[in-house]
Simulated assay, not measured.
Amino acid sequence: MRLRVEFTTEPFDLDEAPEHAVVAREAVETAGLDAVDVGPFGNTAEGGADAVPAAADALLRRTLTAGAPRVSLQINVVGEDGR
């Protein structure tokens, strides 16, 4: 199964990324996911059924530890692996 995770951390600042946004980006970029798209208003990444939940766990733990008072997260099934 192939999954897509969409997430935001708040509050955000267009002038300088807060620490919680930086660690969120690092969490998905180092998780072995593909199709990673990180931006100021939303972020997405795709991967397998094991990789995405593991990345979401790391993202939540790291961003909350870094001071994010709010993290929005959505995971969708987007297909089968290999497609």
Rank of each mutant, 00 (worst) to 15 (best):
M1I: 08
L3K: 08
L3C: 06
V5G: 03
V5M: 15
V5Y: 04
V5L: 15
V5W: 03
V5S: 08
E6G: 04
F7P: 05
T8K: 08
T9D: 04
T9N: 05
T9R: 05
E10L: 07
P11L: 10
F12N: 14
D13C: 02
L14K: 07
L14M: 13
L14H: 03
L14Y: 08
P18G: 12
P18W: 07
H20T: 13
H20V: 13
H20I: 13
A21W: 10
A21N: 11
A21H: 08
A21E: 11
A21V: 14
V22H: 05
V23K: 13
V23H: 11
A24T: 02
R25Q: 14
E26P: 06
E26D: 15
E26F: 04
E26S: 15
A27E: 09
A27Y: 10
A27W: 12
V28I: 14
E29Q: 15
T30G: 10
T30K: 14
T30Q: 14
G32S: 12
L33E: 01
L33I: 04
L33P: 05
D34W: 10
D34C: 01
A35D: 15
V36F: 02
D37H: 11
D37M: 06
D37C: 09
V38Q: 11
V38S: 10
V38W: 12
P40D: 10
P40L: 06
P40C: 12
F41C: 06
G42R: 05
G42M: 06
N43V: 04
N43R: 07
T44L: 02
E46F: 01
E46R: 00
G47F: 04
G48A: 04
G48C: 02
A51M: 00
A51E: 15
V52E: 04
V52C: 02
A54K: 08
A54V: 05
A54L: 12
A56L: 09
A56W: 03
A58H: 08
A58P: 02
L59G: 03
R62K: 09
R62D: 13
R62I: 00
R62V: 00
T63K: 00
T63C: 06
T63I: 00
L64W: 01
T65Y: 00
T65A: 15
A66Q: 09
G67F: 04
P69D: 14
P69H: 15
V71E: 04
S72D: 04
L73A: 02
Q74L: 11
Q74D: 07
I75W: 09
V78M: 09
V78W: 06
V78P: 09
G79K: 05
E80G: 02
E80Y: 02
E80K: 10
R83E: 15
R83G: 14
